[in-house]
C-alpha cells in the first residue's frame, strides 16, 4: 500500500490537487449554497481540512475526488447546522433561493422554474444533476466524487430529470400560474 504521505502529503502533490479541483469544488459548493461568499468560505474550509488530514487520506479506501467531495459535502452540512435560521434544510434549494441566486443566475424565469422543480428532488438527485448538467462532469467523474457506480449515477440522473421535467416545462410555458 502506498504511503498516504506519498499519495498526497507532499506540498507539490497538494498544490496539484488544489489546481485540479478548486474550480470544481467551488462550483459544487456554489450550486449548493447559491451564495458567492459562502461558497468561498466553504471552499477554503474544504481545502484547509483536506490539508490538515492529508496524512489520514488513504488512496486504497477512496479516490481523491470522493474524499474531497465528502469533505465539501460535510462542510455544507455543518454550515447549515450551525446557522439556526437554516437548521432544518439540507441545502439552499429547499428555501426561497440564495441571496445571489437571481442575480448570479441571470436566468430570470428559467432559474425560478428550475428552482421550483428542483425542490421536488432528493438532495442527492439535485447534487448529481447539477454536477452533470452544470459542472459538465462525466458520469465517471460523478461516480468517483459521490462514491457510486456509473450505472447508479446514470439511473439517478434519469429518474431525477423525469421527475422534475413536467413542472419545469409547465412553468416555462405558463409562468403566470406560479406567480405568488
Amino acid at each position: 500500500m502506498p504511503s498516504p504521505s506519498v499519495a498526497l502529503g507532499s506540498p507539490e502533490k497538494f498544490e496539484t490537487l488544489y489546481h485540479d479541483y478548486v474550480d470544481k469544488i467551488y462550483a459544487f459548493l456554489f450550486h449548493k449554497t447559491l451564495h458567492r461568499e459562502t461558497a468561498e468560505d466553504l471552499t477554503s474550509e474544504t481545502f484547509l481540512k483536506a490539508l490538515q488530514h492529508a496524512d489520514s487520506y488513504n488512496p486504497q479506501k477512496a479516490k481523491i475526488s470522493t474524499w474531497l467531495y465528502s469533505i465539501a459535502r460535510n462542510a455544507v452540512i455543518d454550515f447549515y447546522r450551525t446557522r439556526k435560521s437554516h437548521a432544518d434544510i439540507d441545502d439552499i434549494w429547499d428555501i426561497d433561493g440564495g441571496e445571489d441566486a437571481t442575480e448570479e443566475a441571470d436566468r430570470g424565469k428559467n432559474f425560478e422554474a428550475l428552482q421550483r422543480s428542483m425542490q421536488k428532488l432528493k438532495p442527492e438527485q439535485r447534487e448529481i444533476l447539477t454536477m452533470r448538467f452544470w459542472q459538465d462532469l462525466s458520469y465517471a467523474e460523478i461516480a468517483e466524487a459521490t462514491g457510486k457506480s456509473e450505472a447508479n449515477v446514470r439511473m439517478i440522473i434519469s429518474r431525477a430529470v423525469k421527475k422534475m421535467k413536467p413542472d419545469f416545462c409547465l412553468f416555462l410555458l405558463f409562468p403566470f400560474l406560479f406567480l405568488s
Partner: peptide
C-alpha cells in the same frame, strides 16, 4: 428541457483573487 436546464446555470466562475489567496494560505 435539457437546453433550458443548462442555460439556467448560475454564474459559478471562481473569483481569481480568491483562488490565489487560498493557494497562498495553503
Amino acid at each position: 428541457f435539457i437546453v433550458k436546464f443548462v442555460e439556467s446555470r448560475p454564474n459559478d466562475a471562481i473569483d481569481e483573487h480568491f483562488r490565489e489567496a487560498l493557494l497562498a494560505e495553503i
